[in-house]
């Protein structure tokens, strides 16, 4: 946890009205929290680790990957921690067998959708998806892989977009729209045909809105966006806070 976040939560706690504080239990720990926080940030502030993929501190939460699902007693469904606010007295479990099983399935499905052949990937060894899979102990995938063959866009002189590694987390979309203000990327089509595309589905080089800042490349958790000229395993993403996954 960063000092900055600690200070923030302390400051918030002071300015909160006593009635505005909720108590909850996460993995057996009794906690008090600001109801405007999400289960994810509360857990992180107390050193309880919940894996995430589409979540990136500093941009809006999206709730797309479902890797952060947790179990709340009395709720029928699992809920995404990155989007769920605490209610008074809830009991949250982040590591129950049911949660773990779902998390594994979700990551396996993500892996089966595109071509995740890590041994030839530029982010091999530094990939959030790969780390996630190995922490969850995924050794094989129960689902048949789709292995689409998608065109790689290397038109940009500095960056490469390889949709074969994309998990559609939309981090690139959000960082470009919310931080850079360019909104070059968006997710086009729907369902299994969904793709990340620049401007009017153009080669990156021709996307007039792109400023070439490279934020999307650094935000991408996988090898889908990388810098030109990187060999296998050479693409390390620059992050302000090292991701905890």
């Amino acid at each position: 946890m960063t000092d900055h976040r600690l200070q923030n939560s302390v400051r918030q706690r002071h300015s909160l009205h006593p009635e505005d504080i909720v108590t909850l239990v996460i993995d057996g720990q009794q906690l008090t929290a600001d109801p405007n926080d999400t289960l994810l940030t509360i857990a992180q502030a107390h050193n309880i680790h919940i894996p995430t993929l589409c979540f990136l501190e500093g941009i809006s939460a999206y709730g797309g990957c479902r890797v952060c699902l947790v179990e709340v007693e009395g709720y029928g469904k699992l809920v995404p921690a990155c989007l769920t606010h605490p209610a008074e007295g809830i009991i949250v479990r982040t590591q129950s067998p049911r949660v773990i099983e779902y998390r594994k399935k979700i990551v396996e499905l993500l892996l089966s959708e595109r071509n995740h052949i890590c041994s030839v990937c530029v982010t091999n060894g530094h990939c959030e998806l790969q780390q996630l899979a190995s922490t969850l102990g995924i050794t094989h995938i129960r689902y048949p892989g789709l292995f689409p063959s998608l065109a790689i866009d290397a038109s940009n002189t500095r960056f490469i977009h390889d949709p074969n590694r994309c998990v559609l987390c939309s981090r690139c979309v959000r960082v470009c729209a919310e931080i850079e203000g360019a909104h070059t990327w968006d997710i086009i089509h729907r369902g299994i045909k969904s793709r990340v595309s620049a401007d009017l589905n153009q080669p990156w080089k021709e996307a007039v809105t792109c400023t070439g800042c490279g934020k999307c490349v650094q935000a991408c958790p996988t090898g889908a966006l990388s810098e030109q000229g990187k060999a296998v395993g050479e693409m390390l993403k620059k992050r302000y806070t090292e991701s905890t996954t």
Partner: peptide, 25 residues
Amino acid sequence: TLETMRYISHMLHLPLSRVYAVATF
């Protein structure tokens, strides 16, 4: 057409990619 999308994006102050995303969704 792409030209129409470009026009709509300009007039409604929307990113090109957002217009294309909605049109293909």
